[in-house]
Amino acid sequence: MAGLAELGRKRETRFGLLLITPAVLIIVMLLGYPMGYAIFMSFQQWNDKLGADHRAIGLANYEQLVSDPAVHEAMGLTAYFSVITVVGGVALAISIAILLNRTFRGRTIVRVLLLVPWAVPPVVNGIMWKLIFDGSVGIANTILKSLGIISASVQWLSDPAATMNILVFAETWKLLPFLCLLMLAALQGVPRSLYRAAAIDGADAWNTFWRITLPNIRGPLMFALIVQSMWSLKVFDTIYVLTGGSGGPAGGTTTINFLAYLTNFSNLDRGYGSAMAVGIMILVLVIAVFWILVFGGFNRKRRAADA
């Protein structure tokens, strides 16, 4: 009897492996080689403009990465961008989700329209914000002027800090729908009875949020934070279109991923650019692990389900 169970278990495992194979094969075949190639290049002196004589230089590219002031600057910008889009974005998403979780007329249509920014491809996103924030023909200036808030046109995209803020705004606009839906869905999963109990205990809104809502949407919150951290650290398309492919003005929107792009494609310094990209990958993983640690591991619940 025990032997039969063992056999069944083996068969199960084999079936499981069979199911996994196609996905793993596609990923390894398509990404394994390029990934290995990139890691290999990151240990090479490999600048296409210096001809074809590549040579192994050990960790030199990574040493440069640590000491390069351009990298420091880009990391600063990345931190600014990511903290606002991740923490601010998720916080805003929770607020909007709470707002939309109430019952009101037209709730469905509002939720549907909420999806609009999500549907706009990044390339289009960039063009759109240019039409709005252009210093001479953008509608933002026209509106602010007619409201009497400003008297002369504001050059949104000529000041490094302002351009960065517009980028933050554009990305937040784009990512909010997904985060909102995620949070909305999470809120709907919180049992009503908990809220009723809190109300009976006389808890105010703020207390209810911290004691009931937040602990009960912990899982989705972690998922949102991880996914958004990845997207924020790797933001590219919107910067490319918004700044005419430059990461400007004055490098004001050159985040670390955009710097990796410039190094790889503008400067054709593939070795250093690869080291930068590998660095970004490690950074993304570290941050993902950080969120997992903060939220106490992503398989605690799974373990509970196994038992």
């Binding site: 252009d134 210093g135 046109s153 050059q155 000529s158 005419g244 400007g248 003005p249």
Partner: peptide, 10 residues
């Protein structure tokens, strides 16, 4: 100089 000059990319 039109201040927009600093943001005209092409």
């Amino acid at each position: 100089m039109d201040p927009a000059s600093l943001q005209i990319t092409n």
